[in-house]
Design a protein around this nucleic acid. Sequence first.
DNA 1: GATGAATGAGGGTTCATTCAT
DNA 2: AATGAATGAACCCTCATTCAT
Lengths: 206, 206, 206, 206
Amino acid sequence: MGNETETRERLLEVAKDEFLELGYEKASMRKICKKAGVTTGALYFFFKDKNDLFAALVRKVADEIKMIIVHHTEKEQAIYVDAKTTSQELIADGIQQGRDFVTYMYANKDVFILLLCKANGSAYENFYDELVDLMEKNTLQFLDHITLADVPENEINPYTMHWLAHLETSSFAQLLTHGLTLEEALIQAEVIAKYLTGGWLEILKK
Amino acid sequence: MGNETETRERLLEVAKDEFLELGYEKASMRKICKKAGVTTGALYFFFKDKNDLFAALVRKVADEIKMIIVHHTEKEQAIYVDAKTTSQELIADGIQQGRDFVTYMYANKDVFILLLCKANGSAYENFYDELVDLMEKNTLQFLDHITLADVPENEINPYTMHWLAHLETSSFAQLLTHGLTLEEALIQAEVIAKYLTGGWLEILKK
Amino acid sequence: MGNETETRERLLEVAKDEFLELGYEKASMRKICKKAGVTTGALYFFFKDKNDLFAALVRKVADEIKMIIVHHTEKEQAIYVDAKTTSQELIADGIQQGRDFVTYMYANKDVFILLLCKANGSAYENFYDELVDLMEKNTLQFLDHITLADVPENEINPYTMHWLAHLETSSFAQLLTHGLTLEEALIQAEVIAKYLTGGWLEILKK
Amino acid sequence: MGNETETRERLLEVAKDEFLELGYEKASMRKICKKAGVTTGALYFFFKDKNDLFAALVRKVADEIKMIIVHHTEKEQAIYVDAKTTSQELIADGIQQGRDFVTYMYANKDVFILLLCKANGSAYENFYDELVDLMEKNTLQFLDHITLADVPENEINPYTMHWLAHLETSSFAQLLTHGLTLEEALIQAEVIAKYLTGGWLEILKK
DNA sequence: GATGAATGAGGGTTCATTCAT
DNA sequence: AATGAATGAACCCTCATTCAT
């Protein structure tokens, strides 16, 4: 009949709504059960506990996006290893990366909102920070290629690096939380890439 | 004796610690009372409810910082009204504004942390957004002076404005949450100003 | 195939471990199933309920040991019926009886631990007391032969009898629960027999 | 009015009944509240948690009885330090000690039952064993005085010592659990003392 | 023989708040 | 100005068991 997994599916759907509306902590297991028309025991048959329920909604995408960023970093590493690039090329590349990221995000819109804004209290509450760390490594590499030895050292300190990774990450996250459509977001991705690259050039000026 | 207000003071101090450590929602009124060596009745004599307790810690600074930003915007409005400025002057001005903001923030460090990071669930949970809105108006005006009619309209859309205000606000907020000292933060304020202005210039390019 | 009973066997084995570790009440049917790699339905096919599962582990030995004690009592009855015995003979006999009991106990170590220490909450929670009652009848008979009419009546009251049966039973039970090896336990069985007989002689003194 | 502490008192009384009837683990906080005509919040105002509620019933007596035993051991130590005693005197002393112990137990009958039989799962679940350990030290000392160098070493091994302490402790505990009146129990205390001493003499024989 | 989804009551505990005194 | 007892709903979670398939 297909009825077998229906309950699990329904629970996940209801849970997603509840988490999106209230956030992890304020979401109520009881309310989720009630809305799904199911007893608590049924919920706990499918999911070990509240955290597991949240993870079931989020795990796959959380893992994937991390891998995507890591792979992206590695690929760039390979390409640029023996070639010098112009800032125009870097901007173009940044734009493309941004568009890819946005596209993936929008294909998993709800999950990203859960991960970035509603995970407080769950095992994924540090997901945003982990993302920032990966972004930072990415940026670090970008820096290796753009700089030509003349970077004022006192300005590109570790904190600045971290801050910029934050900037980038939150820029993407906001597209989602402010309700832009995919088309609008893709356009903004270009603005972001341009802007952030422009900022770099300003900092790196002698 | 002065004893009367002593209890209130002690409650506020303990509450600040509790909110800083746990955030508004997870903070416990009972624990606050216990740590202050006071009964719940006493707490509720001084403060109407949990929200009022939080507000008592935060209200004054929250109001002040908003007024400071508004005044700043108005003052700039008056100065630039009939003069054209170079981008160098704008950067210099941005730096000064940033330093002022940082200085005020650090003079009220704990309260700012409460407002920006620990207010979730309280009546101040939108404080960050309100700040962004004020910043946005500020930026909007900056734009009026820097542009000379040749801004590509499709890029400086309302969302971009909002996003940039976010960028700026969060840049300042992070100084605090990442534990920089005042001295470090002041230096970073310059980096931020430079970076953000650089981004602008890139966007405004034909 | 032989496969049919395999599941049952595995369940029993796992259940024994679980009951031994946690006791009847805290043992979890779900955990037993999980450890056995079997669903709850399977468990309930073989065993009516939790109590039945416990009984399946324990029933045979519980019945046997009772019969052994009863038979022992009857046999002694027959032997001593018209003969007088010295206290030395009685001690020797007590020692032999103790060694027999210990040997049987150790041949069914786990089950005895379940019965004597882990049965609380199950249908066998009174097993220990039932054993004591049988021991008491046994002792009662010992008394018939050792006494020569001159027992101070106020001391050998029914309660004393019951108490002594407890003493003996728990003495044997402890060998098991304190982790003695069979060899050590057999040696202790002699100590127990000597001690308990010595106690008797002291009580029976005028 | 005296009304203020009435609720706490009532809760303790009801809790005692519940624990006595069901034991620590199966006792239900909710049922205790209901029987006391009080909400759960009220119970948790007075008692931190289930364990604390149990401890409130039991703590004082548990501490006292341990101290009593320790003091007794120390006192004996002082008396016998340079005098040899006859076994008659030792028996007499054992009887007196037993009567004291029984008298104290019966003055706190319910609490002792809680401690010795109903504490499983609580912080006091090892109370019985702790008592045995204290008893063992006591017995150890008794041994020092009664022996005159001619004890067969292989028989008075550490395990035997522990076992005898168990024997003694459980003998006293049973008086309570079998519902003897104080008068009956005091008489039995003498039987116990005689019996246990008699057992010793038998073991110590060459 | 065995699956696995589902029940539903119950577990201990925490919470912000109220109010008579 | 402050006490402290009390509320009552809500929290997440576990349990032995059942039953259609």
